[in-house]
Design a protein around this nucleic acid. Structure first.
Lengths: 110, 110
DNA sequence: AGTTTATATGACTTGACGGGAATATGAATC
DNA sequence: GATTCATATTCCCGTCAAGTCATATAAACT
C-alpha cells in the first residue's frame, strides 16, 4: 500500500477522488453518489487518508473530506519523462491539420 | 481487463517503463539493469504488452521492447480534473509547456 | 545434430487486498 | 441516559497477483 500508484489502482478510490475533485463531501454523500456500502467507503477513505490523498475535518457527527494535491502531483511528476512520446504524436497531428485548416495563431516555436 | 492504473501499480513494471522511456531494450538488458530474474521480467513484459504499454519486435533471438504512449496518455488524461488543485497553489508552474529537450541516448537526465 | 543463448510459459505457493456482516465509537436529540 | 444518526473498525473469506522453479521454444553457433 506504499506507493501512490497502488492507491489509485483501485477503481472505487479513483471514483472517490473524482467526486472530491468537484467538491468536498461527507462520507454519507459519497456513499449515496457511489452507491457502495458505507463500510467500504470508510475503508477506502482510511486508505486515502493514510496515503495523504485526502484529509477530513470534523463537522458535528460528520466528517467532511477534501482533496490534498501532493500524492497526485507525484504521479503527475512520474509521467513527465513519458510525455515526449505523445507530444511528438500531437505535433505530427498538428502538422497534418495545418494543411487542411487555417494556420493557427498560437505559438509554434521551432 | 486490467486498468492502466493497476498495471503501473507494480514498482517493477514502472521501472521497466522508465527504462524504456530512455530507449528501447531487449529482455536481457532489462534483466541486467533491473537485477531481477529473467522469468520475472518476461512476465511483467507480458502484462505490459497485453495492456498496450509496450510492443516488441523480434530481432534474431532477441525481443526488443519499446514504449507505446496510449495507456499512459489515459492516465495523464485522468489527472486533468485534478491539476487545478496544484496549478492554483503553485503559480505558473511550467510543467505543461514544452519540456521537450533533446532526448539523450545515454547518461543521466535530470 | 547437439549445445548455448534468449525468451516465454506453466505449476505451485504465498501473501495482500477488497467485500461483507457485525460491531464499536461518538455526537446529537429526545 | 437511552436512542438514533454518522462514521470507523474488526474479523472472516474469496480472489487474484507476484515470485520462484522448472520446463518449453526457438534461433544461433560449433
Amino acid at each position: 500500500m506504499e506507493s501512490s500508484f497502488a492507491i489509485i489502482a483501485e477503481p472505487n478510490r479513483r471514483s472517490i477522488l473524482s467526486l472530491l475533485a468537484s467538491s468536498e463531501c461527507s462520507v454519507g454523500e459519497l456513499e449515496r453518489q457511489l452507491r457502495m456500502p458505507q463500510t467500504s467507503v470508510s475503508k477506502h477513505l482510511r486508505v486515502l487518508r493514510d496515503a495523504g490523498f485526502v484529509e477530513a475535518r470534523v463537522e458535528a457527527q460528520r466528517r467532511v473530506y477534501r482533496l490534498r494535491p501532493e500524492p497526485l502531483m507525484e504521479v503527475d511528476a512520474w509521467l513527465t519523462p513519458f510525455r515526449r512520446f505523445w507530444t511528438a504524436h500531437v505535433d505530427a497531428l498538428e502538422r497534418h491539420l495545418d494543411q487542411m485548416d487555417l494556420p493557427p495563431k498560437k505559438g509554434k516555436k521551432r
